[in-house]
Design a protein around this nucleic acid. Structure first.
Lengths: 331, 331
DNA sequence: GTGAAAGCGCTAACAG
DNA sequence: CTGTTAGCGCTTTCAC
């Protein structure tokens, strides 16, 4: 009773060869209608389930894809995973999720595991301080980088966000309503995304004759805590009247700090977040933010995944989606 | 170059038998130190990764576990998945996530896929209207039911939430501040969780001499939309002065409706949500809610998972975690 | 200390 | 239309 039901056991049960069973089950033409019916019926009764392991070993490929994210708590990542998982459901793909917590060692282990189960492709948010090792970890996996780009990984596709114009809009807006001491908290420039966002902010400030002040900028590996702490230290400085965030976690952390400190936005500080979780619209009569097209990113990711599962030739592509400055009450 | 690196290819490369390679790689005693070293070095150089498929086919078991959730957008599910995924990371388990959207057909397909890849166990939030078919779908998977209980699935463990006392506390509180027309929106009683929550609400009302009014209760399969619509129709009725929600999605939907309608809480309506997403604390000066111990649930889930992977004997257990009424500003 | 054979479940390639 | 053989990558069992 507890033995696995295989094509052989079905064949034995029916007194035929296992090949006939295999053919019947795979809709192969060369099987008589009645044999097929008998097989199908018996398979159903016995609760036959084909072995993915056996298929994989024959080189037919698993339909496993990996998703590496820092976490699932941040709503951006959660929404991305949600949409991607739904798409995988449709495309009959198995989605294995690994959380890296932005730690290189976890990223390495996750990639290794994925290779063990012969995942065909992986969508990943590369961890910030990518050691050289990373490119070795990917082996023959098709890689799609999300949000952040790690040029070292050759042959990887990338799904990025063009947030320069949105950040620029945010700064222009802040200046237009009278701010001149605008602070910025962002990822450290080691990452492409960190560099680009900082550059966009810096350029916009310069254009408005407000050159970057080290005193008003905070850069480090991005995290909720980093955002929280940075805001605290900024407030201790006592100069900033406005803030632009350059990262999801950072934004949530800084916002939490503002709320806990009872800061009125935009009176005490004009706040521009990063990413647009559903609840931002309802906090403090609306948090202004840089909004990213999560769903489009995820759907595109699903398409890229499927394409890279099918194609034999690497066709690394980089697609950039535009972000937008959404003005609400906090700035 | 693109051929898979196997113990055979390493063996050939080194001019030895693949068995020796296997032994070297598995720390078997009977291998000379220098052979082992040579093998290890070469394997590293070639980027050898052991085939999970081959191991699985030998009956060694994959370390795959499944997680079936309605979605990942609701913060409760996202947090649960996050904590569980982190725990799986530690336990070297592969976590495959399937979203059911509370549709029976998706649940069936997800379970089938999981059986194909020989997942050892699955944690699932059973979909509401479980046809009889469901129990057939689980095959030889170890099942851990989360939040909702489907008694039909024999031998399944369950991780439930004891929210009766918390719901009771919420009602008592509402009555104590003068409410008598208290509405309830919850899952339909077909599900155990729906029944229990309704019973708790009903009992508490009775105890306070406020028998249940059909006019003020809404029950249906739980979803964001259902919560949203139910609140609208409740408001059209114009009688309710307070509301208790009996479900995650319902709570979010009803809250969205309140906010969009510009309802002041608790003045226009005293609102008690269900589940405690981080942002509830910051919306409308704080949303009162029934708070669930997500992290404890997830950690327990991970432990149960690991236990059921190891054990041969089914030891179905049911564990109930207590919920709590968290009073904030909205009620 | 090392190797050869067998078999896990499945299908492509040949026989009949 | 149906059956036999072989082999995917790995480890267990039994030689040497």
């Amino acid at each position: 009773m507890s033995d696995r039901v295989t094509i052989k056991s079905i064949a034995q049960d029916l007194g035929i060869s296992h090949m006939t069973v295999s053919r019947a089950l795979t809709s192969h033409p060369n099987v008589s209608a009645e044999t097929r019916k008998a097989v199908l019926t018996r398979a159903e009764e016995l609760g036959y389930v084909k072995s993915a392991a056996a298929k994989a070993m024959r080189g037919d490929g698993t339909r496993i894809v990996g998703l590496l994210l820092p976490n699932l708590v941040n709503e951006f990542y959660a929404r991305f995973a949600d949409t991607l998982a739904a798409a995988c459901e449709d495309k009959a793909l198995h989605l294995i999720i690994h959380l890296t917590n932005d730690e290189p060692s976890k990223e390495s282990r996750a990639l290794l595991r994925l290779r063990e189960v012969q995942a065909g492709a992986v969508i990943m948010v590369p961890v910030p301080d990518a050691a050289e090792a990373a490119s070795r970890d990917i082996g023959n996996l098709r890689v799609v980088q999300l949000i952040r780009e790690r040029p070292a990984d050759r042959g990887a596709s990338a799904l990025l966000v063009g947030d320069g114009p949105a950040i620029s809009d945010a700064v222009d807006h802040l200046v237009s309503v009278g701010h001149s001491l605008i602070a910025y908290i962002g990822a450290d420039p080691a990452m492409s995304s960190g560099r680009h966002r900082l550059a966009a902010f810096s350029d916009a400030m310069k254009r408005n004759d407000r050159p970057l002040e080290p005193d008003l900028t905070r850069m480090a590996p991005p995290s909720f805590d980093m955002g929280y702490q940075s805001l605290q230290s900024l407030m201790e400085g006592g100069r900033a009247t406005a803030l632009v965030c350059g990262g999801f976690e950072i934004s949530n952390g800084a916002l939490e700090a503002c709320l806990q400190n009872g800061l009125k936005m935009p009176q005490d500080i004009a706040f521009v977040g990063y990413g647009d979780p559903a609840h931002y619209a309802w906090i403090n009569q609306g948090i202004s933010t840089i909004s990213l097209p999560v769903d489009r990113l995820a759907r595109q990711a699903a398409d890229v995944l499927e394409a890279s599962m099918a194609d034999v030739g690497h066709s690394a592509s980089t697609i950039t989606f535009p972000a937008a400055f959404v003005r609400r009450h906090s700035a």
